[in-house]
Design a protein around this nucleic acid. Structure first.
Lengths: 102, 102
DNA sequence: CCTGTATATCGGTATATTTCGATATATGGA
DNA sequence: TCCATATATCGAAATATACCGATATACAGG
């Protein structure tokens, strides 16, 4: 739980937007039939929605992952990203702990 | 309450450290006798503790103020900064609101 | 008004971040 | 094994941030 790394990851409006989008799978196109039972959204969908290049989004997802905000799972050629609610929660707790007066 | 500006202000370990130090006046040298009834800490004390240049600290305090984390009060040649607990609280609330699922 | 002290602002350099296109890697299928 | 697709990584250019020293401003006391 590196608060510095976490804040850097959040200090970008598009990365924060991605975390918001991931709250609800219906922000993205429907999953392919063979992926319907999987949690998470593939990089391509996120890229399309964000309107940035593939490499940028791949990099962003890596930052969010290292910061503990998303989990990833590889299935075939696809990587599916989803929110890490426990990681987000624990960051929030630690962050408030630091910021708020006691 | 600009969350972008607030996160930028917090995205620096020394600025966060300053907010922590300001939780407790005793982190700094005692106030001059004529300032004893005043709340807050003057820029010089903060600078000395942080070990950065005067201009950097003055700039930092300006960023923290614009972000709503500190209040300032001028008395004579001194500017006294103190935490804006309400501002900090309201940032925390808004931030969690955005970050946490629902 | 002149001087000294505290703080703010300016202008610059070094470093970090954003973002891209090109390329590398992984995988599934013909 | 060869090709197409999805994602990751690399290298570079543009922009932002971290700092500094120099200078400006604000004020207090003689």
């Amino acid at each position: 739980m590196d608060i510095e790394q976490a804040l850097s990851a959040l200090n970008n409006p598009i990365r924060r937007q991605i975390l918001e989008w991931l709250k609800d799978r219906s922000n993205f196109p429907p999953a392919l039939p063979e992926h319907e039972d999987l949690d998470g959204v593939c990089v391509g969908y996120i890229q399309e929605k964000a309107g940035l290049s593939q490499s940028t989004i791949s990099n962003y997802m890596g930052l969010l992952k290292k910061a503990g905000f998303v989990l990833s799972e590889r299935h075939g050629q696809w990587t599916f990203y989803r929110r890490d609610e426990a990681g987000i929660q624990s960051f929030c707790t630690a962050f408030e702990q630091e910021l708020l007066r006691k």
